[in-house]
Design a protein around this nucleic acid. Structure first.
Length: 295
DNA sequence: GTCCAGGCTTTCC
DNA sequence: GGAAAGCCTGGA
């Protein structure tokens, strides 16, 4: 993909960017460490860097960074090499997705850090987004490293597997509001730290093989593994089925009380290698519109 | 082997 | 008081 880039004063401006709407990208539930500022911009910490993102008319402004960081970190993180226009044209052949895409037209799927993503989605199980965000922030403050201060707020890295593997379960539970998931987090960190599960091998595996490996981690089931594959390993055929996707799929495509596995199978057959993108448009549409929710 | 009920921390609506 | 980007365990 070609972009017009301007570098100036610790900022990168991408002129006339297509298919990138900060609200859609950062509030569609794929990432939990984007914080909205008073001016409507968003700040995150990723790969040991703090970055602020703002859309001004058709331009995207990345602040607190430079050209080499943009090339080495942010270009891949924001999935800027992928042509979302082409993906949207293909998926819009389905009238329901056409509607969902109109609603979340600026969604992109980020390429996030594997370990942080695994732990984040273990925390997400049977949980709510505000509390998930709070737990991840607490874990970072308690066990991560201070990285930078931006706009008066201090940012901490997410701790690595070695650090989390050596924390007492009770302490993790009490200090970070993760509840009964504490034992899953510590056990998973141990298995990864001791290379009992080698997550570095996952990019070389098929989506199915990778999923079987990830599901050996405690606290990682079918849904969490799909999220990790889609959001951290660029496996774009993964289709996480959570309560909202179950509702929206049953509402528009299938009958009530369809089994989760049958929803996955149907979705992969329908959307193929674009299933993960379809999932993200549908999830955002369903949650924002409250599709199928009880009143 | 598959399927299902019940339990799980705590917050949010 | 029910639900929340579910998973684990035990039993049929």
């Amino acid at each position: 993909m070609n972009y017009n880039i301007i570098e100036k004063d610790n900022k990168i401006t991408i002129e006339n960017i297509k298919d990138f709407e900060p609200k859609h990208v950062f509030e569609c539930g794929q990432a939990f460490r984007w914080y909205m500022e008073e001016d409507g911009s968003y700040t995150t910490i990723h790969h040991g860097r703090v970055l602020n993102v703002k859309k001004e008319r058709e331009d995207l402004i990345l602040s607190n960074t430079n050209g080499s960081e943009f090339q080495n970190i942010w270009y891949n993180y924001f999935d800027l090499d992928t042509d979302y226009g082409e993906i949207k044209r293909e998926l819009s052949k389905d009238p329901i997705l056409e509607e969902a895409i109109k609603f979340g037209e600026g969604i992109r799927i980020l390429n996030q850090e594997p370990f942080e993503t695994i732990i984040s989605f273990i925390i997400s199980a049977n949980n709510q987004i505000p509390r998930i965000k709070k737990s991840i922030e607490l874990i970072s403050q308690n066990y991560g490293k201070p990285i930078d201060i931006y706009n008066g707020k201090e940012y901490f890295s997410f701790p690595n597997a070695e650090i989390l593997a050596n924390i007492d379960e009770k302490e993790l539970e009490e200090k970070n509001k993760v509840g009964y998931r504490a034992k899953y987090i510590v056990s998973t960190a141990k298995m990864i730290n001791e290379k009992e599960i080698d997550i570095h091998q996952i990019p070389n595996l098929s989506t199915k093989e990778a999923k079987e490996i990830l599901m050996k981690l405690p606290g990682v089931g079918p849904k969490v593994s799909d999220c990790v594959l889609l959001f951290a390993f660029n496996k774009n055929d993964a289709f996480p089925v959570d309560v909202w996707v179950k509702r929206v799929m049953e509402y528009f495509y299938l009958k009530k009380d369809t089994k989760l596995k049958d929803i996955s199978t149907y979705s992969y057959e329908k959307f193929g290698d674009l299933a993960g993108f379809a999932q993200q448009y549908l999830f955002y549409y369903a949650r924002e519109k409250g599709i199928g929710r009880k009143k």
